[in-house]
Design a protein around this nucleic acid. Structure first.
Lengths: 243, 243
DNA sequence: CACCTAACTCGTACAGTGTTCGAGTGTCGC
DNA sequence: GCGACACTCGAACACTGTACGAGTTAGGTG
């Protein structure tokens, strides 16, 4: 029996008729709060329990394991991502809004990134998003598997970009360095190893001045890549029929 | 002091003149073997120690914490990624080889994906790769920040695609389902929720027959996206000077 | 030769983790 | 009143990363 069919999403949450003190929604909600505040390493069932004013093991009535709780939390984050209706904006604008929204959600909840590679995301909110993505890219003119390929390339851009950016963000936050000082702090290290990476060093010296705010740079890089991807998709849609 | 400057990469490995039983290289190598075989959750310092025929705490002489060991392991994987010389192949082919190689390395060592969001990868092999990427995209005609933006969009495509694919691969492996049976196993679940995701369901029925082998589908999706991205980058390089 | 110092190894211990189990409590329908 | 169900939770188990300090070796110096 594959874990697709027998997962959180099939089993209905156990609840009583009245309102019990602990609900699955409340557990997931506060878990997300803790994850946002302290990262994946900061969430333990015991700490979550005490924060909810209950014993740690009480949570296991509402959730099978911690993994399942993480799965629920990830899907909850997916509900924050808005996929425009193609009739409203046209596909290109819609895809752009989707990609930007996905990146923003991942940066608000960076712990999600580490979860994405562990299991497929087939929760209701992820499915809802998939459904709307199909509508968006079908309306754009993609057919068959190209629909999912087009959706996948945008999703990959958002996830991949957020991965790199959140790595830097986490490091900056841990070290308490002001982002605008990062380049300065990094300089001695780069200076020391410059000889071994000549092409990189040359490029670094040329772009040094404009390269000060890392977050602005990531934002610009994401936008640049997104436009190139959308250009490439558009080119494909308008390709000569001969092919 | 940011953790950029004071990290594994600055501190030289402590060794004696002769060949001690335990070396940093050996530790990292067997750690990677265990990670490949059992995933990130399967590696513990104690198990790694016994596998090396030594006490668990002996490892802490060669490595500061487990986090540092993971950092070393990730950088070791980066050494497997080949970045072509632009003089050999031209930039488009070079970029394609790079992206495919990166995806392949991540799929060989899926545990790396979960590490990428935690800290920036500034190990020697990652730096070496960055250096060669700068050379590649500079030769292509990109200038200034566009060099890193172009490199970033390809890296994001590889990382993002590998994330989705490794999620499915992990789930398949855990459940022991034959990949070619996945669609069949998933069917009842999708059938049940079909009503809630009409666009998705319609698309699924239309593409059903061709959609059998998930790995082939991911490969095709990756290749499709990569070509669109390269098209988009090429379009940008050839843009009219007016802009 | 003795002796010292540095390079390592490792057993013990501590605080914390996810999770199981079984005993408890309350509330609802009959 | 009573049985069944819906929950809560304390104790316990096996496991984790890692600090500490004592132990072992080997090389160099007197």
């Amino acid at each position: 029996m594959p874990d697709f069919a027998d997962s959180v999403w099939t089993r209905p949450p156990r609840t009583r008729g009245d309102q019990p003190a602990l609900t699955r929604e409340q557990i997931v909600r506060t878990a997300i709060e803790m994850l946002d505040a302290e990262g994946a390493a900061g969430l333990s069932m015991r700490r979550l329990g005490t924060r909810l004013g209950s014993g740690a093991t009480s949570l296991y009535w509402h959730v099978a394991h911690k993994d399942e709780l993480m799965e629920l939390a990830v899907d909850e984050v997916f509900s924050e991502i808005y996929v425009p209706d193609p009739a409203d904006t046209g596909w290109r604008m819609g895809a752009s809004v989707l990609a930007n929204g996905m990146r923003a959600a991942l940066m608000r909840h960076p712990w999600v990134i580490g979860q994405l590679g562990l299991r497929p995301t087939i929760g209701p909110n992820a499915m809802r998003m998939g459904n709307r993505m199909v509508a968006l890219f079908s309306a754009a003119g993609f057919t068959g598997l190209e629909v999912s390929h087009a959706a996948a390339v945008l999703q990959a851009h958002a996830v991949g970009s957020a991965t790199t950016e959140s790595a830097v963000a986490a490091s900056l936050q841990r070290s308490g360095v002001d982002p605008r000082d990062m380049a300065r702090q990094l300089e001695p290290f780069l200076e020391r190893v410059a000889g071994e990476y000549p092409d990189y060093d040359k490029w670094r010296r040329e772009t040094d001045e404009v390269n000060q705010d890392p977050y602005a740079m990531f934002q610009a890089g994401f936008a640049f890549g997104l436009e190139r991807i959308l250009d490439g998709l558009e080119l494909w849609l308008n390709r000569p029929a001969a092919e």
